[in-house]
Design a protein around this nucleic acid. Structure first.
Length: 525
DNA sequence: GCGATCACGTT
DNA sequence: GTACGTGATCGCG
């Protein structure tokens, strides 16, 4: 057989009507894309099927899954030691392992398919997760372009700055020590300088930013330490870290994991592109280093307040729904209802508090959590929470019934049927049980938002191809999607993106989408 | 080399 | 307060 003939036969196999099966297919799809194959027709990814059945699965190693989910008595041979692979075994061993993997996956298909059907996870699997494999594989394959000179410049600046602050700190401390070592820092602060310690950690006294913040007035070194931490974090994690993973075409290619989080969200690693700084001026400049290729631009679209909108939809709370329909600033609207004043009379402080409560709500916050956050007493926090629930009573009902149902069943379910077991709910430990309750409240909200966002990703990728557009998705950050577009295609891409994201799922509140474009990620914000 | 610990970036 | 991933240090083997 000629090579071309083999390629054609392989292509036909990948496109077969009945679809292909594999374990962790995204990686394979990515390899196929590098070899110029079209994305395959997927029937099942056993890894994803297991994830849907239990998003807390400890390991996705095939032999253990076969034992756990397979119905046949089935043992596979000794796994080859990694080190031997290249030495003597050669390609035969890799082929043998691939064959074993395929065999394991094939044994799993039927029982997994049945379990997926039994738990009503068919739609989630077939309409969302499986199509998403291709979208993510293409995103990973493309990667996002970075401005190498800019990134290097940032790294170098930070390096110099860290060095300067380091000298000052050693001067003020009166000794040389490793500032990166919390252990050494503790000795310097609490023993040698005699400062008063605050919070404790498992092994000693805390030196985290929150604690240091409170010690600001006790010694001039504290402010420099805080600065050092900020700059050193940026230098190491983002400066050095990102430079180390720049690949072909000056692009960074992260891996987006589909089977990691308990909630249905994606995670990103090598590098993690989900936590690129944005909060501080010093940090957010890194977003200027993420760019579009020559004559193209980045288009950034994100859902406005999607999780709070999910709460409004799930609870059916008329007040909250009304607040969103008004189309005004949501925190001002909620503050007006919570504090019983007209929106125009809402003070800055009131808006800020309402905002805190709204965010807290998403995380299943209780009174003491809010107190911590706002730096107020427990009583006052309870009273704010009370007025909030007074203004939005159905939200309170929803939270309570969510926890109740989760306790009865032992798991939560999103609107789309995504399940998550929460064993913490039956813990004998009260702290752990509270954690379980927060997890239960958060799971349905964050999970629904994740489901909606995944639908949008799948639909958007599909629409771009259908319209034969050159624009493509290059990055995803939980409720935000970044496209790289030829400049002349931008306005069309904006239209398409807003339409697709806005209509991903019909809720009792509108799905609002913010959109903008620019040469850099920062500019398109 | 590996895991635990601490700290910290995002949503 | 949810959910993650990474860098650095340090003690263990």
């Amino acid at each position: 057989l000629h090579e071309e003939e083999i390629k054609r036969l392989f292509s036909d196999f990948l496109q077969r009507k009945s679809g292909i099966v594999g374990h962790g297919l995204k990686k394979i799809v990515r390899s196929l894309l590098w070899e110029n194959y079209s994305p395959p027709n997927i029937y099942m990814d056993t890894q994803i099927a297991v994830y849907l059945l239990n998003p807390a699965e400890a390991s996705y190693a095939l032999p253990s899954l076969v034992t756990q989910y397979g119905e046949r008595n089935f043992t596979i041979g000794e796994k080859t030691e990694e080190g031997q692979l290249d030495l003597d075994g050669g390609p035969q061993i890799a082929q043998m392992e691939a064959a074993q993997e395929a065999l394991c996956a094939s044994v799993l298909v039927e029982p997994l398919q049945r379990a997926i059907e039994e738990q009503n996870l068919m739609d989630l699997n077939n309409e969302i997760e499986i199509p998403l494999i291709i979208v993510l594989a293409e995103m990973e394959y493309l990667g996002i372009k970075v401005d190498l000179a800019r990134l290097t410049g940032l790294r170098d600046e930070l390096k110099n700055e860290v060095e300067e602050i380091r000298k000052i700190i050693h001067e003020l401390a009166g000794e040389e020590f490793n500032i990166n070592s919390p252990k050494q820092l503790q000795v310097v602060l609490f023993e040698n300088l005699g400062l008063k310690p605050g919070k404790k950690t498992k092994t000693g006294y805390s030196t985290n930013a929150q604690t240091l913040e409170k010690m600001k007035d006790d010694h001039p070194v504290i402010n420099h330490l805080l600065k050092y931490r900020e700059v050193e974090k940026l230098r190491s994690t983002y400066g050095e870290g990102l430079l180390a993973v720049v690949g072909e075409g000056e692009r960074i290619r992260a891996t987006f994991h589909q089977t990691v989080t308990r909630t249905g969200r994606l995670s990103s690693d090598a590098p993690n592109l989900h936590n690129i700084p944005v909060r501080t001026d010093k940090g957010k400049v890194f977003r200027e280093a993420f760019i579009a290729k020559e004559d193209w631009a980045l288009l950034v679209a994100d859902y406005n307040q999607i999780e709070l909108r999910c709460i409004a939809h799930l609870s059916g709370d008329s007040g909250l729904i009304q607040a969103f329909e008004a189309g005004e600033d949501i925190h001002t609207s909620t503050a007006a209802q919570v504090f019983g004043v007209s929106p125009s009379a809402v003070s800055k402080a009131q808006r800020e508090r309402a905002k805190m409560v709204s965010y807290g709500l998403i995380y299943g916050m209780e009174a003491w959590g809010l107190a911590q956050r706002l730096g107020i007493g427990n009583k006052e926090a309870a009273s704010i929470l009370n007025s909030y629930f007074g203004a939005f009573p159905s939200v309170k009902d929803y939270m309570e019934s969510t926890v109740q149902i989760a306790k009865e069943r032992g798991y939560t379910e999103t609107l789309f049927g995504r399940r998550r077991r929460i064993p913490e709910l039956s813990s004998p430990n009260a702290m752990t049980r509270s954690l379980g309750e927060r997890q239960a409240m958060n799971a349905g909200i964050q999970g629904l938002a994740a489901d909606i966002f995944k639908i949008a990703l799948v639909n958007l990728n599909h629409k771009l191809k259908e319209k034969k557009m050159a624009s493509r998705i290059v990055l995803q950050v939980h409720d935000e999607v970044i496209l790289e577009c030829p400049k002349e295609e931008i306005s069309e891409a904006e239209e398409v993106t807003i339409e697709i994201m806005g209509s991903a799922f019909a809720m009792s509140v509108p799905l609002a989408v913010n959109i903008s474009s620019g040469i850099t990620w920062s500019e398109a914000k």
